[in-house]
Every structure is written in C-alpha cells, then in structure tokens.
Computed example of a mutant assay.
Amino acid sequence: MNEYLDRAVDKLRAAKAPADRHGAAVFKPVVAALEDFCRQDAEFAQAVVQGGSVENCVMHVVKGAGSSLSDLEAYKRAAAFFFPGCVVEMKLTIYMSKHDVPDTDSAANKAVVLDLADFW
C-alpha cells in the first residue's frame, strides 16, 4: 500500500455529511467512490490527503446540479475537486441470469490489465 492511503481513508471516513439535503443525499456514495479511487491510485490518495475538506468537496459536487445529478457526474465532480483533469469512467454490465455472472473466485476469470505507460 502507499503511504497516503491510510491517511486518505481516515480523512474520508471522519468527514461529516453536510446539513444541506442535496449534499446529504450524495455524501455516502461520493465518499465511498473517493475511497475506492484512493485504493486505485496512490497519487489520488495523496491529493485527497493534501486537498480540501471532504465536506467542501461534497458541496462542490451538488453545486448547480438542480434537482438531479447522475452518479457518474457526481463522481467526476468529486474526483476533479481533489485532482483536476482526472478522468472517471463507469462500466455497467448486465447478466440475464445469476448463472451468467463470471465466477470471480476462478483464476481463469481474473483479468490482468497492463498499462504500457508503466514500462516507460
């Protein structure tokens, strides 16, 4: 693990939901997504530790959203609060039956993803 991960997770988990009803509505899922992003990337975790407050991040997410905001847009705004210019992608997959879901315990179903930039 990276040196910032524990500190970033502690910061996210210590945050309090805003009193604003819009901020309160997105608080838990946004914090959960940010924690996941920290686990994915050490540089993002560092940005969370060194960045603004989680409460201000959540208020940034809902600012100007009106009465609706997609999950993806909320996560993009939250990530950009701490790391401007980052890209957030979302993938949804539908399986027509629980029997079609790949066995995640099987080694054959575990993907290996290589980023060629890692070899430079």
Rank of each mutant, 00 (worst) to 15 (best):
N2D: 15
E3A: 11
Y4E: 08
Y4L: 02
Y4W: 15
L5Y: 14
D6T: 12
D6H: 09
D6W: 05
D6G: 10
A8Q: 02
A8F: 03
V9F: 03
V9P: 00
K11C: 05
L12R: 01
R13A: 10
A14D: 15
A14E: 15
A15E: 08
A15N: 01
K16V: 12
A17N: 10
A17D: 04
A17R: 15
D20Y: 02
R21L: 10
H22C: 03
H22N: 12
G23L: 05
V26M: 03
V26G: 02
F27T: 03
K28M: 08
V30D: 08
V31I: 15
V31R: 04
A33R: 12
A33T: 02
L34H: 06
L34A: 09
E35F: 07
E35T: 12
E35G: 08
E35V: 04
D36V: 04
F37S: 03
C38T: 06
C38L: 05
C38F: 02
R39S: 05
R39K: 15
R39N: 14
Q40N: 10
Q40P: 02
A42N: 08
A42G: 10
A42Y: 05
E43R: 11
F44R: 04
A45Q: 04
A45H: 07
A45C: 09
A45W: 02
Q46C: 12
A47Q: 08
V48Y: 02
V49T: 12
V49L: 09
G51T: 13
G52W: 03
S53V: 07
S53T: 15
S53W: 02
E55L: 00
E55W: 06
E55T: 14
N56P: 03
C57P: 08
V58L: 09
M59F: 06
M59L: 15
H60L: 05
V61T: 03
K63V: 05
K63G: 03
G64V: 08
G64I: 05
A65M: 12
G66K: 11
G66R: 06
G66I: 04
S67Q: 11
S67D: 14
S68Q: 13
S68C: 07
S68W: 14
L69N: 00
S70D: 00
S70A: 01
S70T: 14
D71Q: 08
A74D: 05
A74K: 04
K76P: 00
R77K: 14
R77Q: 04
A79W: 00
F81C: 00
F83E: 06
P84H: 03
P84R: 09
P84S: 06
C86M: 06
C86N: 09
C86S: 04
C86Q: 03
V87G: 00
V88N: 00
V88P: 01
E89N: 10
M90A: 13
M90F: 07
K91I: 06
T93I: 08
T93S: 12
I94C: 09
I94D: 05
Y95W: 13
Y95V: 00
Y95H: 13
M96F: 10
H99K: 13
V101Y: 10
V101F: 07
T104I: 11
A107P: 05
A107I: 14
A108Y: 11
A108D: 15
N109L: 10
N109D: 14
K110A: 07
A111F: 03
A111I: 05
L114C: 01
L114E: 12
D115N: 14
D115V: 10
D115E: 09
D118N: 14
W120I: 11
W120R: 15
